[in-house]
Amino acid sequence: MLIAFNKPYGVLCQFTDRSTPPRRTLAEFGLPPDVYAAGRLDHDSEGLLLLTDDGALAHRLTDPRHKSPKTYFVQVEGEPHDDHIDALRRGVTLNDGPTRPAKARRIDDPALWPRDPPVRFRKTVPDAWLELTISEGRNRQVRRMTAAVGLPTLRLVRVAIGAHRLDTLMPGEWRICD
């Protein structure tokens, strides 16, 4: 079984949390028993998370050798210029080495649900949206890539993993994939 889930902001990609106070987890969303996340999405990121009860499928979805592309809508602080986009397309050097080239383009503000809590608005600091597709899955990679080119991430929403898309799922909703 494969499940597409729209992970809300502030939810961990696990079913239990031992921290004090406890944080929100996947346990509150009525997911089928015996599934687990195939990959991760940071606590402060939103969007598509795939869950499965099939270990081999989870491995295929997450192993970097399979280069499953992951697409994100990224709200960044600042005004992206061609040199920013070109740098992301070439790949940037992070503290753990160079990234693979990404597909990157500026997009109009996407039609998304409001984030709770909202991203802090600052009248004097512009922001913009990028669509970024990567084929790796390093820790906080998209955030580190945009920061490396001078565009800190304000909001990060994963909209696709390979052929699996978020589509119309709202935060906290899930569906079984065909």
Rank of each mutant, 00 (worst) to 15 (best):
A104D: 05
R105E: 15
R105T: 11
R106Q: 14
R106D: 00
D108K: 12
D108N: 11
D109C: 11
P110F: 07
P110V: 12
A111V: 15
A111E: 15
L112V: 14
W113R: 07
P114H: 11
R115F: 01
P117H: 14
P118Q: 11
V119I: 12
V119N: 11
V119R: 07
R120F: 12
R120N: 12
F121I: 15
R122E: 14
K123N: 09
T124I: 05
V125N: 09
V125Q: 13
P126Q: 10
D127A: 13
W129L: 04
W129H: 08
W129T: 11
L130S: 05
L130F: 00
E131P: 06
E131L: 05
L132I: 13
L132E: 02
L132Y: 01
T133I: 06
T133Y: 05
T133Q: 09
I134D: 00
I134W: 03
I134K: 02
E136F: 10
E136D: 12
R138A: 08
R138E: 10
N139L: 12
N139V: 13
R140K: 07
R140E: 03
Q141Y: 04
Q141C: 09
Q141I: 09
V142G: 09
V142E: 12
V142P: 12
V142S: 12
V142D: 06
R143A: 03
R143V: 04
R143W: 01
R143F: 00
R144K: 14
M145K: 00
M145Y: 03
T146N: 08
T146K: 09
T146Y: 09
A147F: 11
A147H: 10
A147L: 15
A148N: 02
G150A: 05
G150S: 11
L151E: 02
P152Q: 09
P152D: 08
T153V: 04
T153L: 01
T153G: 02
L154M: 08
L154A: 01
L154W: 00
R155E: 08
R155K: 05
R155N: 02
R155D: 02
R155A: 05
R155C: 02
L156C: 01
V157T: 07
V157N: 08
V157W: 07
R158C: 06
V159C: 06
A160E: 07
A160H: 03
A160D: 02
A160P: 11
A160L: 02
A160W: 03
I161K: 03
I161C: 02
I161N: 01
I161M: 10
I161Y: 01
G162R: 05
G162E: 04
A163T: 10
A163S: 10
H164N: 09
R165G: 01
R165W: 09
R165E: 12
R165A: 11
R165I: 01
R165N: 09
D167T: 13
D167G: 01
D167Y: 09
T168D: 15
T168H: 13
T168F: 08
T168S: 13
